[in-house]
Design a protein around this nucleic acid. Sequence first.
RNA 1: GGAGGGAUGGCCGAGCGGUUGAAGGCGGUGGUCUUGAAAACCACUGACCCGACAGGGUCCGGGGGUUCGAAUCCCCCUCCCUCCGCCA
Length: 431
Amino acid sequence: MLDSERIRRDPSGTAQRLRDRGFDGDLAPIVELLATRRALQSEISRLRHALKLRNREVGALYRAGRREEAERLRAELKRSPDEVSDRERRMKAAAAELEQRLLHLPNLAHDSVPVGPDEAANVEIRRVGEPPQFAFEPKPHQELAAALGMLDVERAVKLSGSRFAVLPGAGARLERALARFMLDVQTRRHGYEEVWLPLLVSGAALTGTGQLPKFADDVFRVEGRDLYLIPTAEVPLTNLHAGETLLRSELPKRYVAFTPCFRAEAGSYGKDTQGLIRQHQFDKVELVKITEAERSYEELESMTRDAERILQLLELPYRVVLLSSGDMGQAAAKTYDLEVWLPSQGTYREISSCSNCEEYQARRARIRYREAPGRRSRFAHTLNGSGLAVGRTWLAVLENYQQADGSVRVPEALRPYLDGLDAFRLPAAQG
RNA sequence: GGAGGGAUGGCCGAGCGGUUGAAGGCGGUGGUCUUGAAAACCACUGACCCGACAGGGUCCGGGGGUUCGAAUCCCCCUCCCUCCGCCA
């Protein structure tokens, strides 16, 4: 949520920067609602004050034993018209509509973000690692995995329909190995605190991080209840401190969680229908930081490097992309995507997204901090990043480490997590 | 699922419907005393909003109601606790 004070002070400048974010709405109603709320608020405040004094007088008269005067004043007050509640109703209505409108506005982009309508305006920051050269036609991961007995699409369809997967045997082991490896790196080497979380969260939590109210179609809701399957652990992690005022000395908070993520993928029909790129359910190791305002951009750089570390250790070629104003998620002020090389597609595909949301989520979730007890509180800055999407890492390993005979080498860094296994081999080739 | 009991400031805990934004304690901050510390004593110490300041308003889990006036009375909701049932 944006600072309404900012909108009031500079409506046209804010509107321009919102247009950079792809927001085509009009700020005029918001500006008007702000003025209405403000005027009614001060009027109510004034009326209340006057009323309060007279009500107290009744009590004082009773206590002084001046019953008759007290009764007279009481009767008078009873007869006097209610000037407050009507204004209060109008004020509440204005405030509620204002709130709804504000909740739909995206964050403003940071100055360093390229302005543009879509991914065409993104800027590549760096490339790390060389795409592997194959003396044969590299296969897509779903073919490799099916042959290796690591993926069973038919049975997944039988259980749940499209965009779900069953990973038998070695497939499941690889998924678990990757998750443990990522968690170990982020907790031991980068100092994140691991947290185990609910996978179902309230609407309030989703509103706090920005998925609601605008993107209700993207999340699965439990029938008849105010509970939703998390689309990312960013939601419970960031909301851990919702409504709290932290002390500056305890910042930054650095959290990591390994969870399944659930996405309805409404509107993505026909996109990435083959393979495991786009699923309704996937595993992810998520990083979240809560920082003081002055440090958040340093923390974004280090968080991005923390995510990159996984790709480096797995020796997967990737690039870092700075998203343009039009390509970012609604809560982000600045986002770096990490894209891993996929040989079968001959291109880089998103495997992580690291964002600084500045105050946007902190305002919605009311996450504050203060310098010291007694000092004024400020909104914290929140950051989130994948470290990494496990499912996409799984398939990137298969594709990049595939051999001519259909086997897949295991990256060195992962072998300790697979009892020293050096390759996934075809059943026929085994023994 | 059934039966009870709760929700008050950073924490514990009072609170006849009328100077109660809220006693008391703990904690915290400052001071006196002390070579220093502890102890003791004194003072200060909730949040949010509007305002340059003075000041004003709101907040006792959330929402509604009764009343001239609600932390205090009534209704609904949420959450927590205890016991029973069920259960990994």
